[in-house]
Design a protein around this nucleic acid. Structure first.
Length: 436
RNA sequence: GUGGACGUAGCUCAGUGGUAGAGCCCCGGGUUGUGGUCCCGGCCGUCGUGGGUUCGAUCCCCAUCGUCCACCCCA
């Protein structure tokens, strides 16, 4: 009479122990790198008022129009599971009165939610590393921020990513350009495909991004964004490129790079890879000088980016650097009731005396064969055998489990911790090496 | 939301119009207290679900759900 099993929610994945080390590696690199660049961690809620996202991301974007997990809570409030992090981060900076002339370099990691149809590299719950520099007009911060993303790839050992760069200009310049573009597109309305027709009024810049080959000729003939940049944005963009060159960071100018989120202005960038199929954007971001005001704060320039952790982890999997499997350091085995009872306190003592070492006690009984099998599978290089006879004499057997790791020796229970510590000290490096 | 492929043991997969198998995993044994190799044995499935065709379906047909991939969108 087994009950019907409950399936996981579509597009939401379990992270199993086997995959955890890669995530931990990515998280560790993230912490260290952002620390090194002067960024501080901040944590914001996963749920926000729906209006926040409508105002920040734009009502007519796909994300807001059809991908948000929105609901009304018991108090009747319209809430949404965050589809991205920037809106919440900016909201938090405003809510907490952090603006007043101060500048902030902030980061945050966590789950985001978008109701999309899952496929390779795309999930309904996914995770982003989100980095925001608020109160900096650039272009120096733009360059530093992009250098930071490049450092990520270096530290993670990820190659085969390319940087695409563009400038959208100020909101005003963009508006003017948009007029030009819609004019041009309206004149060629007959050549537009279905998607493009839909975008024509709502978000015409996105048409430039179309992958439809039939649209390419039309797009090629369209008024180009770079030519309509305002003078200041152009200077900003030119300077940014010079700085990137000085940093030795290669990039491709991509005049058709338009972000799907409305809040971007001036610098936009995106790192793509060819290794992940259709979902090729691995990190993207840009400047959002107007967003703070849009959300009710005093005018403050800002720039940020988001990195898709699932996609980065997938890239990590393809690389050579497989993290070592997690292994125990010591496995305790006991024969007989009295020994089994003495084992737990001994394990506690060892854990207390040897912080950082993984000490596993055999749980659930079993004969020696079974217990040693477990010891072997735990990956421990060392077993500590508590037998009935030894127990009465106050000793235990220290038994190396791996080839060439020495012979078993008898040790006193009273000084077990020092004996274990010494055993590890005597090993050639690699055996039971402690991770930082 | 649209399209395509695929759903058989925990995992990877064979297979047949007469209600199923392999390998791995797991458990036990190979001298009373010593693992990893080897040998022997054992456990495991409503063949995704519902309906139809048929004397009979895991196999054929339809629907449905799920997974994956692509479009779209984006990290």
């Amino acid at each position: 009479m087994s009950a019907v099993t409950i399936a996981p929610v579509k597009g939401m994945n379990d992270l199993l122990p086997a995959e955890a080390p890669r995530w931990q590696f990515l998280e560790r690199v993230t912490r260290e790198l952002l620390h090194a660049y002067g960024y501080d961690e901040m944590r914001v809620p996963v749920v926000e008022h729906t209006d926040l996202f409508k105002r920040a991301i734009g009502e007519y974007t796909d994300v807001v129009e059809k991908e948000m997990y929105s609901f009304t809570d018991k108090g009747g409030e319209a809430l949404t599971l965050r589809p991205e992090a920037t809106a919440g981060m900016v909201r938090a900076v405003i809510s907490n009165g952090m603006l007043r002339g101060a500048r902030h370099k902030l980061w945050c990691v966590g789950p985001m939610f978008r109701h999309e149809k899952p496929q390779k590299g795309r999930f309904r719950q996914f995770h982003q590393i989100d980095v925001e520099a608020i109160g900096f007009a650039g272009p120096d911060i733009d360059a530093e921020l992009i250098a930071l993303t490049a450092a990520f790839w270096r530290r993670l050992g990820i190659g085969r990513v390319t940087l695409h760069l563009n400038s959208l200009g100020t909101a005003e310049a963009r508006r003017a350009y948009r007029e030009h573009l819609t004019g041009y597109l309206r004149a060629h309305r007959g050549d537009l495909d279905e998607d493009s027709l839909r975008r024509l009024e709502g978000n015409p810049l996105r048409i430039l991004d179309s992958k439809n080959p039939a649209m390419q000729a039309l797009i090629a003939g369209a008024p180009s964004l770079p030519e309509h940049l305002d003078a200041e944005s152009r200077a900003h963009f030119v300077e940014l490129q010079a700085m990137l060159q000085a940093l030795g960071i290669g990039f491709e100018l991509n005049p058709r790079l338009v972000r799907g989120l409305d809040y971007y202005s001036r610098t936009v960038f995106e790192w793509t890879t060819e290794a992940l199929g259709a979902q090729d954007a691995v990190c993207s971001g840009g400047r959002y000088d107007g967003l703070v005001t849009q959300l009710g704060g005093e005018a403050t320039p800002a720039i940020g980016f988001a990195m898709g952790m699932e996609r980065v982890v997938a890239l990590l999997e393809q690389g050579a650097a497989a993290p070592p499997a997690v292994a125990a350091d010591v496995f305790l085995v006991a024969q007989g009731e009295a020994a089994a009872r003495a084992m737990l306190p001994l394990a506690e003592a060892l854990r207390g005396a040897l912080p950082g070492r993984r000490i596993e006690a055999n749980l659930g009984g079993g004969n020696f064969k079974a217990q040693f099998r477990r010891a072997d599978r735990s990956g421990a290089p060392l077993a500590l055998v508590l037998g009935e006879d030894e127990l009465t004499r106050g000793v235990a057997q220290l038994k190396p489990l791996r080839e060439g790791a020495g012979a078993p020796q008898e040790i006193s229970l009273a000084t077990a911790a020092t004996a274990v510590a010494r055993w590890f000290d005597d090993q050639p490096c690699g055996v039971g090496e402690q991770r930082p």
